[in-house]
Design a protein around this nucleic acid. Sequence first.
DNA 1: CAAGAATAGTTCGGTGACGAACTGTTCGTC
DNA 2: GACGAACAGTTCGTCACCGAACTATTCTTG
Lengths: 167, 167
Amino acid sequence: MTKGQDSIDLHVARWAALWEGNPAFDGEIEGAMTRMQFILRAKNRRDAAAFAGQDFTMEDYDTLHHLMVQPYPTEATPTQLAEAVGVTKASMTGRLDRLERSGMITRETDSANRRRVLVRPTRAGREAWDKYVHAGMRREQEVLGALSAKELVALNALLRKAILGLE
Amino acid sequence: MTKGQDSIDLHVARWAALWEGNPAFDGEIEGAMTRMQFILRAKNRRDAAAFAGQDFTMEDYDTLHHLMVQPYPTEATPTQLAEAVGVTKASMTGRLDRLERSGMITRETDSANRRRVLVRPTRAGREAWDKYVHAGMRREQEVLGALSAKELVALNALLRKAILGLE
DNA sequence: CAAGAATAGTTCGGTGACGAACTGTTCGTC
DNA sequence: GACGAACAGTTCGTCACCGAACTATTCTTG
């Protein structure tokens, strides 16, 4: 690869050639979206490899993780978890079924509002999370490892601005 | 939301509190990854909405799109497409089946290497792509709409650096 | 040049996600 | 305080995806 160019530069250049002179195409937008996708995919591949061939899956960890990091840690409802994780309530039911079956969480109907269900991690759940969280953070740091602390701050500033435009 | 803070700031602050004093946790890394996920999710939701309730699905478009933007446009193998799109070859077989059934592409075994299959868009395929590509770009521009041209360049510079560290 | 390794694509079985429909509970309001 | 709307969670049917096994070619090498 030419120095200073990544594979997405090629992709964008190729596409730009098809759109020559058309102002509707913005290579910087296309590049930014594609690059973010690329980076997240790299992270996901690493995660998948780390959990491959185990009984404790990436989804299990993902759900457990969001449970541990909730505003009121160690307690959340299925709907809250579904939103945090980014899946539907129906999918969350399935995920919680599995976690409950393997003894990682408990489900208890909230006595104050009997429609709600309170999900809590068990001791085994906490331990499973604790076992994997460090390696998970290490993988995240790996994929962004080329950036200095200052650059990371700058990156977050830009991303934050984009998000504020959406919220 | 406090001025200048996005929802991910809250998420990171909450998590940081759990890790107080532990240098293994880096809020900037966590923030950057979570924000990229957030932005791509926003894009994906918009795309899903645009294709909802139609016969022509988001996956159909996705596949067709990568076919049109290949190095040799209008011709690619299933494996190339699978890698470009980010699914397995098995999944790509299914996607191509559907596109072929609906007359968007043709499959022809390469006479020079009869293991390979050459995928090409039909006229209908090109037209379908053309119909959706503009709106798709508009959606991408929407989710990054808060950023100026300069900021987009800066964003790409940072992301590029991260990717070069991975490639 | 024959036999085994590598490659391209497909088939198959299983899993997780989704939207829609359903059950049970609580809220709102007249 | 009764009844319809809203809400929380689950169930159900369908669909796309994945890894592994399989078929058919082509490459390699002794």
